[in-house]
């Protein structure tokens, strides 16, 4: 199968290793990965901050870029949630019938990375080897908007050498929330302090998630405090092999 990669703008720019890992995993499974250069951003930051009209051209670009893609995989639960939860509403608000139709067609073909593996491709064992202690932060959008449930965990449990340690208070938000982290920096930092305490209490070497935006936030504090604990996207763990 040809799987179109929607890398998402921030992964493209800040976390290219996650993209490389997704490619490695999907190719290991025998699929062809395609990358359309015209892709850019889902508009989540704009939309969630209240800049709906600024988000709209980004939706248009997404729809234009991926119009004829069969299956689209994105390694970001919040970007997939943006597409699934808000694109249909934005298209409807634009009054453009054609766009509504195209969005309706495209949305069911978009999969978050762990959904892609577990639901669409039906695999949980990627033959990965990662000899480290890991804890999983479920990411609010993955948990509540996409309902990923235990999919990320199922994937991690089949990784050789990996010891998964339960994250206490896992379902609490890390405090990122996009521009929330900037506009309400004090509360965001207080939430992050709670998350850090939980991550550090596990004693894990690595904190993982289905979303690099949460990890960027968590890592920001782990790094500032020189804890030595690192963050890695789920795809990077699944791509690791002996």
């Amino acid at each position: 199968m040809t799987i179109d990669l929607f890398i998402t703008c921030y992964n493209d720019t800040l976390f290219p290793d996650t993209g490389k890992a997704v490619v490695a995993v999907l190719e290991r499974l025998g699929h062809r990965v395609a990358f359309r250069r015209e892709q850019s951003c889902c508009g989540q930051m704009h939309y969630n901050t209240g800049y709906q009209s600024e988000a709209f051209p980004l939706l248009r670009n997404f729809v234009r870029t991926f119009a004829d893609a069969e299956v689209i995989c994105a390694p970001s639960s919040s970007c997939v949630a943006m597409i699934r939860d808000h694109f249909p509403k934005m298209a409807a608000a634009s009054g453009d019938e054609k766009l509504v139709e195209r969005v309706e067609e495209i949305v069911p073909r978009v999969f978050e990375f762990s959904e892609m593996l577990v639901d669409r491709l039906g695999v949980t064992d990627l033959g990965a080897y990662y000899p480290h202690t890991v804890t999983l932060h479920p990411s609010c959008h993955g948990l509540r908007s996409l309902g990923l449930g235990n999919k990320p965990r199922q994937l991690l449990e089949r990784v050789r050498g990996l010891r998964l340690i339960e994250l206490p208070e896992a379902e609490q938000c890390c405090g990122f929330g996009g521009t929330f982290a900037i506009k309400n920096a004090d509360v965001s930092a207080a939430m992050l302090a709670d998350k850090m305490r939980c991550v550090l209490n596990t004693g894990a070497e690595v904190c993982t998630a289905t979303d690099n935006s949460c990890l960027m936030h968590i890592k920001g504090a782990l790094s500032r405090m020189r804890t030595g604990v690192k963050c890695a996207h789920l795809a990077e763990i699944l791509a690791a092999s002996a």
Binding site: L14, F15, P16, G19, K20, R224
Partner: peptide
């Protein structure tokens, strides 16, 4: 962006983007 770095580090933008690697 100062209120980000008041509490957290940020990794520098890496030398090669995903699309450049691709």
């Amino acid at each position: 962006l100062a209120s980000w770095t008041e509490f957290r580090d940020l990794d520098a933008v890496p030398g090669q983007s995903f699309r450049e690697w691709w």
